[in-house]
Design a protein around this nucleic acid. Structure first.
Length: 821
RNA sequence: GGGCGAGUGGCGAAGUCGGUAGACGCGGCAGCCCUAGGAGCUGUUGCUCGUAAGAGCGUGAGGGUUCGAGUCCCUCCUCGCCCACCA
């Protein structure tokens, strides 16, 4: 650093480009950001989501990481040994597609991007402990994906099955349900189609009930609700009705309304239901096959659209509603989904909107069996007939036209009917979830190879642990067309069976990248250990994660998978806690001109020009000052001058000569205390924007003051600002004679005694309208306040000629004189 | 259609155990300073009327509760997110 001043009285200019790289280099060389696993301070694990190495640290990253870094620094200054690691979620289809576009190897593309982003993180001034960097595309990491897969397989938590799955025709791979957004591929927004394929699944549904519980977790309500909706637990019964004339055939269905079973006047199967082929009568065969073929060709979006008219075809077969004794027709219709429940329903048109619409469409009978009228269906009486229903009644009520159950309340009837079904052996109470098992296999190259071998003699053979990792070969061809590049690589595919030693074929699918990120928080603790996925001794010092910050867009996908993997590893005996993350907060999404930023739209905004012009500290401060962090915002750099000016002022203050004595300024002393309180509380609550505003106010107050109180205010400001703007505060701390790094200092304490106001503004109202403002001493009695208000000429004028009915006094705040008209 | 959240100046936003609406910042206006910088400083800036003092009106719309409502209750509108033919 050159000494910029040359004898003149002019203050040296604030030049971020000079001080920021200097401190970044110094922090790196002194290991300021290296966190020991053990120290004299309590450990605190502050995790923030690692990025995809997509190329550039853009404004979305700044919006996520600058505030997270600030919050982590704050906790460190409050006396904790804070672990704040970073890494890269380095596998994934993006790298593969980008590599195809540029004729580059995905590994090279990824390495290049990681190098660039690492550098940008350093220039942001983030307190990252780079010794602990986790990179998921390295064999040292992904071998543990494979190890976990084998453990899951052993336990029955991983399995291979043929199922109708989501297929993205553009990316040429299957997708998990969680990766299909409005019927489109999460990555490329192509319409997803259903295909029957044999794939690998993780049994997340085993944990559905436990995943619904958030006991003891400090998670946003919003995320909990989203996960609960996604899991979609429904209680009801599974019951079967026999198919007429077919000895062993029965249609098994799930219903949440067993109480309406007497109103089931027809049944509906999904077009893909296995019974369709066997029960369809010869007369209906052609129509049914045409309908099934048509359903197969429809997009998922069309099929699941609630708006379009219901369609369906009779199978010609009939079932027996064993409760009502009625013979009811069996239809097929695409509004019944093969993947939910049993893929078949009993249709109760009087009490279900969809069944109602379908019955209207095809003239099927509608039988009311629930009455909203509490007096209806008294035992022995039949419901009175009334005109045709205009819509389904889906509420609870009293069972009518339901044989022995007439007069029963629906909530009771639900249980009674389910119990009766169980007694007669045709059903049982049952719970169904919307959540499907996690489809983890992908037909892509850039991912973790699934460690199994297919042998003609031994079938599916897991690769023995001792042979891990199954290394992803480098020499694959990327065409982007026609299946996984691994499948075309004989050197990879052809192997020998670990059991019998005869020639066998390797699995060529790779794992979903969400598998990689589902456990990365354990790997940061020791990235080198090669005997286990985690260093347990170190883990005991840090886990579970104390705090996690991540974008709200991950509320379901990643955050649900993390919880599942944690619970599965716990049940395998590898983890000792039930939940991986104690405290979660989500930043909102940053958009540009109202639209989400994405590479495919080409509207990704990079703040580099602002970093170059104003410095990282200004950009950090600006993204925090923009608005409430949890709400997100529209990116508009127009206001960045404001935060730049603020730092210029802080700089000027920081370099100004000490007062050398004089009287204290009680008001400024109070302002300092109030600011400490405000910034502390705001950082605890992630209110970065108002914390910055408070510091701006203090800087203005200090600017106009003098004497020792001003010196103290500047000292406090440097400390309070340190987590927000680490470079300028480090420089000022040093120049003002501070010892060590400002980032190793203790957060200033708040003294309520000093903060207390001595004078307050009392608002004098008449009938709720402000008529005067009185500057009075704090703590006056109610009577004194009342007298002071009544003595105000403005108040007197307002109440002239009126009778004072009463006077309301709020201590230190207001007096309201209420008059009669 | 269901659930959750939100509507406040020209703009980003503060304020929600009911008690001074618009903190802080951008932008605007007026001025100061300096041989001039992409610098700094001061004042002003919700709307309407008024030269002014001042008055009236103002937090999506409409009702309600209250001495007092941006804040609580009811009805409605708009936007965002999540789920959505899930039986």
């Amino acid at each position: 650093m050159t000494s910029g001043t040359s004898g003149t009285s002019k203050t040296e200019r604030y030049t971020p480009s000079a001080i920021e790289p200097k401190w970044q280099a110094q922090w790196a060389s002194t290991g300021l950001h290296d966190t020991p696993d053990e120290s004299d301070r309590p450990n605190f694990y502050f995790l923030t989501a690692f990025p995809y190495p997509s190329g550039d640290v853009h404004v979305g990253h700044w919006y996520a990481y600058a505030p997270a870094d600030c919050a982590a620094r704050f906790i460190r200054m409050r006396g904790r040994n804070v672990l704040f690691p970073m890494g890269f979620d380095a596998f994934g289809i993006n790298a593969e597609n980008a590599a195809i576009d540029r004729n580059m190897h995905p590994a090279a593309w990824t390495e290049q991007n990681m190098a660039q982003m690492r550098d940008q993180f350093v220039r942001m001034g983030a307190m990252i402990d780079w010794r602990r960097e986790v990179i998921t595309c390295y064999p040292e990491y992904y071998r543990w994906n494979q190890w976990m897969f084998l453990k899951f397989l052993e336990k029955g938590l991983a399995y291979r099955a043929t199922a109708p799955v989501n297929w993205c025709p553009r990316d040429e791979t299957v997708l998990a349900n969680e990766q299909v957004i409005n019927g489109r591929c999460e990555r490329c927004e192509t319409l997803v189609v259903k295909k029957d394929l044999t794939q690998w699944f993780y049994k997340i549904t085993d944990y559905a009930d436990e995943l619904l519980r958030f006991d003891g977790l400090d998670w946003p309500e919003r995320v909990r609700v989203m996960q609960q909706n996604w899991i979609g637990r429904s209680e009801g019964a599974e019951i079967q009705f026999p198919v007429e004339g077919q000895r062993d055939a029965a249609v098994r269905f799930f219903t949440t309304r067993p109480d309406t079973i007497y109103g089931a006047t027809f049944m509906v199967l999904a077009p893909e239901h296995p019974l369709v082929a066997t029960i369809t009568t010869p007369a209906q065969k052609v129509a049914v096959e045409a309908y099934v073929a048509n359903a197969k060709n429809e997009s998922e979006i069309d099929r699941t659209s609630a708006e379009r008219p219901k369609t369906g075809v009779e199978t010609g077969a009939f079932a027996m509603n064993v409760f009502s004794g009625q013979r009811i027709p069996i239809w097929i219709a695409d509004y019944v989904l093969a993947t939910y429940g049993t893929g078949a329903i009993m249709a109760v048109p009087a009490h279900d909107e969809r069944d109602f619409a379908f019955a209207k469409q095809y003239g099927l009978p509608i039988k009311e069996v629930i009455s909203a009228d509490a007096g209806a269906g008294a035992p022995g009486s039949e419901a009175t007939e009334h005109g045709p229903l205009e819509s389904a009644f889906t509420g609870d009520g009293i069972m009518v036209r339901s044989g022995p159950y007439n007069g029963t309340r629906s909530d009771v009837g639900k249980r009674t009917i389910a119990a009766e079904a169980k007694k007669t052996g045709i059903g049982k109470p049952s719970v169904t979830y919307r959540l499907r098992d996690w489809l983890v296999s992908r037909q892509r190259y850039w991912g973790t190879p699934i460690p199994v071998v297919y042998c003609d003699a031994d079938g599916i053979v897991p690769v023995p642990e001792s042979q891990l990792p199954v290394v992803l070969p480098r020499d694959a061809q990327f065409t982007g067309r026609g299946g996984s590049p691994l499948a075309k690589l004989p050197s990879f595919v052809d192997t020998t069976c670990p059991t019998c030693g005869k020639p066998a074929k390797r699995e060529t699918d790779t794992m979903d990248t969400f598998v990689d990120s589902s456990w990365y928080m354990y790997r940061y603790l020791d990235t080198k250990i090669d005997t286990h996925f985690m260093n347990v001794d170190v883990g005991k010092r840090w886990l579970p994660v104390d705090r996690y910050t991540i974008g709200i867009e991950h509320a379901i996908l990643h955050l649900l998978y993390c919880r599942f993997v944690c619970k599965a590893l716990r049940d395998l005996g590898y983890l000792w806690f039930d939940e991986p993350i104690r405290h979660l907060r989500n930043q909102g999404t940053i958009v540009f001109k109202g639209r989400k930023m994405s590479k495919s739209r080409g509207n990704v905004q990079a703040p580099d020009e602002y970093v170059a012009r104003y410095g990282a500290d200004t950009v950090r401060l600006f993204v925090m000052f923009m608005g409430p962090w949890t709400e997100g915002n529209d990116w508009d750099a127009a206001g960045i001058e404001g935060t730049a000016r603020f730092l210029h002022r802080v700089w000027t203050l920081g370099l100004s000569a000490p007062s050398g004595g004089g009287a204290r300024d009680a008001e400024l002393d109070r302002a300092v205390q109030r600011t400490i309180k405000k910034v502390t509380e705001d950082l605890e609550g992630y209110h970065f924007n108002t914390a910055v505003a408070a510091m701006m106010e203090l800087s203005t107050a200090a600017f106009h003051a003098s004497g020792p109180s001003r010196d103290a205010a500047i000292d406090a400001l440097v400390l309070l600002l340190a987590p927000f703007a680490p470079h300028i505060t480090e420089e000022l701390w040093q120049r003002r004679g501070g010892q060590g790094s400002v980032h190793r200092q203790t957060w200033p304490a708040f003294d309520p005694a000093v903060a207390r106001d001595v004078a307050v503004t009392i608002v004098a109202q008449v009938n709720g309208k402000v008529r005067d403002r009185l500057e009075l001493a704090a703590g006056l009695s109610e009577d004194a306040l009342k007298q002071a208000a009544l003595a105000s000429p403005k108040v007197a004028q307002a109440i002239a000629g009126l009778r004072v009915e009463r006077v309301i006094v709020v201590a230190d705040r207001l007096v309201n004189v209420v008059t009669t008209s």
